[in-house]
Amino acid sequence: MITEVNAVNFRQNLGEMLNQVQYRNDSIVISKGGKPVAALVDAELFARIRRMYDRFDALSSRLAEGYRDVPEDEGLTEIDALVAEERKKR
Rank of each mutant, 00 (worst) to 15 (best):
Ala58Gln: 14
Met1Ala: 06
Arg87Trp: 12
Phe56Met: 14
Met1Trp: 02
Ile79Ala: 05
Thr77Asp: 14
Asp73Arg: 08
Asn19Gly: 12
Leu18Cys: 09
Leu63Pro: 00
Ile79Tyr: 01
Ile28Val: 11
Ala64His: 07
Val41Met: 07
Asp73Tyr: 08
Leu40Asp: 03
Val5Asn: 01
Ser27Phe: 04
Asn13Leu: 13
Phe46Ala: 15
Glu86Gly: 07
Thr77Val: 11
Arg90Gly: 14
Ile79Thr: 04
Arg62Ala: 09
Glu85Phe: 08
Arg51Phe: 12
Ala64Arg: 09
Asp54Gln: 13
Asn6Gly: 02
Val41Leu: 14
Gln20Val: 05
Ala81Gln: 11
Glu4Gly: 08
Asn6Lys: 04
Arg87Cys: 12
Asn6Ile: 04
Ile30Cys: 02
Thr77Tyr: 10
Glu16Arg: 07
Glu4Ile: 15
Arg55Ser: 12
Ile79Arg: 03
Lys88His: 08
Asn19Phe: 13
Phe10Cys: 02
Thr3Gln: 02
Asp69Cys: 07
Gly75Tyr: 01
Arg48Glu: 15
Val70Gln: 07
Tyr53Ala: 05
Ile28His: 00
Tyr23Gly: 03
Gln20Arg: 13
Ile49Gly: 01
Lys89Asn: 08
Pro71Trp: 01
Ala47Cys: 05
Asn25Tyr: 10
Leu18Val: 14
Ser60Asp: 10
Ser31Gly: 12
Asn6Glu: 14
Ile49Ser: 06
Gln20Lys: 11
Val21Lys: 00
Glu74Met: 11
Gln20His: 11
Lys35His: 13
Phe46Ser: 13
Leu63Ser: 05
Ala58His: 11
Ala47Ser: 12
Glu86Thr: 07
Lys88Val: 12
Val21Leu: 03
Met1Asn: 05
Arg87Ser: 10
Asp69Ile: 06
Leu59Asp: 04
Leu14Ala: 12
Arg50Asn: 09
Asp69Asn: 15
Arg55Gly: 10
Gly34Ile: 07
Leu63Cys: 11
Leu14Glu: 14
Ile28Tyr: 00
Val37Ala: 02
Met52Cys: 10
Asn25His: 15
Val5Met: 03
Arg48Phe: 12
Ala38Thr: 07
Asp73His: 09
Lys32Cys: 08
Arg48Ile: 11
Asn19Tyr: 08
Thr77Arg: 13
Leu76Asp: 13
Gly75Thr: 03
Phe46Tyr: 15
Glu16Asp: 06
Glu65Cys: 03
Ala84Arg: 11
Leu63Ala: 11
Glu44Asp: 11
Arg55Pro: 08
Val37Gly: 03
Ala47Pro: 01
Gly15Val: 03
Met1Pro: 03
Leu63Asp: 05
Met52Val: 10
